[in-house]
């Protein structure tokens, strides 16, 4: 099989097939799975850790764990959910090492605020940017649940598996994340834009 054919075969393979090949020591499958997950997983880690360099390290640590543990995957969850679960665990460990968990709210509140004046008129497209900017000021738990639901488009059940918590906890976190976002928007003089 030539390189082009091999690449198209990798692209057609399911996550499960790639993981099975990784379990057999196939390094090309590691490359294929990395390329498939890199963009969304890296974005998730950047938004969770707020640190590109750390996100790149955690991305690699996650994929290295996938390499190590591929043979242990039992198929109780989807491959993607399993990998995000590893990535989330490693991201939280990284934050704990940096002692950011305890300081998260405090640190979040100190994120440089280049907000427009509260009385300025905010157009619809600016509102999206404002929401995105304010999200950076949420706690890690709230950022994670918003990312996993809105960007990664995981279901409540999948998020519960990733975070290793009950489904009701996921819904509660989402509720409080949105409530906090609303409070931040209101503090900027924007009423009724969220939640």
């Amino acid at each position: 099989m030539d390189l082009l054919s091999a690449r198209s075969a990798d692209a057609a393979a399911s996550d499960g097939q790639l993981l099975a090949r990784i379990a057999r020591g196939d390094k090309d499958a590691v490359t294929a799975l990395y390329r498939r997950l890199e963009r969304p997983l890296f974005a998730f880690l950047v938004k969770t850790l707020r640190d590109r360099e750390a996100a790149a390290d955690v991305l690699n640590e996650t994929m290295l764990d996938v390499w190590r543990q591929a043979g242990r995957f039992e198929g109780k969850s989807s491959v993607t959910t399993w990998i995000y679960s590893i990535a989330h665990h490693k991201a939280i460990s990284w934050l704990r090492k940096r002692r950011e968990m305890e300081l998260d709210e405090e640190a979040a509140a100190q994120v440089a605020d280049d907000a427009p004046a509260a009385d300025s008129v905010i157009a619809a497209q600016d509102l999206a940017q404002t929401i995105a900017r304010l999200m950076e000021r949420l706690s890690v738990d709230h950022r994670v649940v918003l990312q996993l639901a809105y960007f990664q488009e995981f279901s409540v059940g999948q998020i519960a598996e990733i975070l290793d918590c009950p489904e009701n906890t996921v819904k509660t976190r989402m509720f409080y994340a949105r409530q906090r976002l609303r409070a931040l928007l209101e503090a900027e003089g924007i009423q009724g834009a969220a939640a």
């Binding site: 890199e38 974005a43 938004k47 929401i131 949105r178």
Partner: peptide
């Protein structure tokens, strides 16, 4: 609106450095 904002912000994240792979 929230979903659009979150998705747009995540899509704007530059990819991981090529040397990472």
């Amino acid at each position: 609106r929230e979903r659009e904002a979150v998705a747009r912000a995540a899509e704007a994240v530059e990819p991981a450095p090529p040397e990472n792979l």
